[in-house]
């Protein structure tokens, strides 16, 4: 049987084409303290310096054995780019968004005309370039970014949830704005060598906003991003946290290649809910990968594999204190798996 490079294998698996075996990758954040120690690239510096970011991403491959490299490690660079107040991260903790910059339509106009080559998003693009130059022929180069709905929430604060209800014109203006940004940013990541784009849109959950709002304020905008990526031959993966079971059918309407589900979703049920999208998931990053032994990781991996998951991966971002041996146990289980 043909043996594919990790890059070919993932590209094929995401399209549902036959492969020699399951690709061992994480679509969500990979940075851990043990990898930081091994690579000498620590948070928070590795969030701000392209060389360090690339070095820590590389550790996911060289230390853990993931068959891909992926940046960045958080989802705040986009909000930071537009001036939101950020609570700084630490060695073990990702930064978080604590302040918001858009109240009304006029504020959106003030933020337009931005230069995509500035700020931490540009660091991410530089890191992608470094990784693509070194590994681009062999490994998938994964870029990730926050999705347009969650970015709108970062910019507008919790009023965003009411604004989509009470002020449709504003809601559409803002989500158009964030989507334009997402497309420009994703295109730049692709230009720099990213071949797989992970869209992380945690607040765009049908569980939170319901199907009606999801259809109106999420689907068309995800579709625009997915289409822009398709034109460039970049695969797309959508990750939304929480119990997305009831939202899966709607999530795939945007044309995304694969959907990553978290541990509160039953993988077999999830596969029934979609027509075409590849389901990715869903080892519990906290109660399995971080807090249990390699033996439990193997057993839980087996359960998810037995449920028929097309690609086994962590259900959400890997916790920074996760032991490498647990991640390796998952990687081994994946590599041994034939379809």
């Amino acid at each position: 049987m043909v043996e594919y490079t990790p890059k070919e294998r993932l590209a094929r698996a995401l399209k549902g084409q036959p492969v020699d075996r399951m690709p061992a990758v994480s679509f969500t954040q990979t940075g851990t303290v043990e990898q930081m120690e091994a690579s000498g690239a620590f948070w928070p510096e590795a969030n701000e310096d392209a060389q360090k970011m690339a070095a820590l991403a590389e550790a996911g491959h060289t230390v853990v054995g993931f068959e891909a490299v992926r940046v960045p490690f958080d989802i705040t660079a986009e909000a930071e780019f537009f001036g939101c107040k950020i609570k700084a991260g630490t060695r073990e903790q990702q930064p978080s968004v604590v302040g918001h910059v858009i109240k009304e339509t006029a504020d959106i106009e003030k933020l337009s005309g931005y230069d995509i080559n500035k700020g931490r998003i540009s660091v991410v693009c530089d890191a992608i370039k470094i990784l693509a130059d070194k590994y681009g022929k062999e490994l998938p180069i994964m870029g990730s970014m926050i999705g347009p709905f969650s970015l709108a929430q970062h910019l507008n604060g919790d009023d965003w949830f009411m604004n989509i209800f009470t002020d449709e014109a504003f809601g559409q203006a803002l989500i158009d704005f964030t989507t334009d940004f997402n497309i420009a940013y994703a295109k730049k990541m692709a230009e720099n060598g990213a071949d797989t784009m992970v869209i992380i849109d945690p607040t765009a959950s049908a569980q939170l906003i319901g199907a009606q709002f999801y259809e109106k304020f999420v689907v068309p905008y995800h579709r625009r991003i997915v289409n822009a990526m398709k034109e460039l031959g970049v695969a797309t993966v959508l990750h939304i946290c929480g119990d997305t079971t009831q939202g899966l059918a709607l999530m795939e309407v945007c044309g995304v290649d694969a959907i990553s589900v978290d541990q509160s979703v039953n993988v077999a049920t999830a596969m029934d809910k979609v027509d075409r999208a590849i389901i990715i998931g869903n080892l519990d990053p906290v109660n399995v990968l971080w807090n249990k032994t390699p033996e439990v990781v193997r057993q839980k991996s087996k359960e998810v594999l037995d449920a028929g998951v097309p690609i086994l991966a962590p259900g959400c971002g890997i916790v920074s204190k996760t032991p490498t041996e647990n991640l390796r146990a998952m990687v081994e289980m994946i590599k041994e798996h034939r379809y």
Binding site: F161, M162, I164, F165, T166, I209, G210
Partner: peptide, 14 residues
């Protein structure tokens, strides 16, 4: 019973 969601609840709270 998933008849309403966050946007509606937030408005009712208001």
């Amino acid at each position: 019973v998933a008849e309403i969601y966050l946007p509606q609840i937030m408005m009712s709270a208001k």
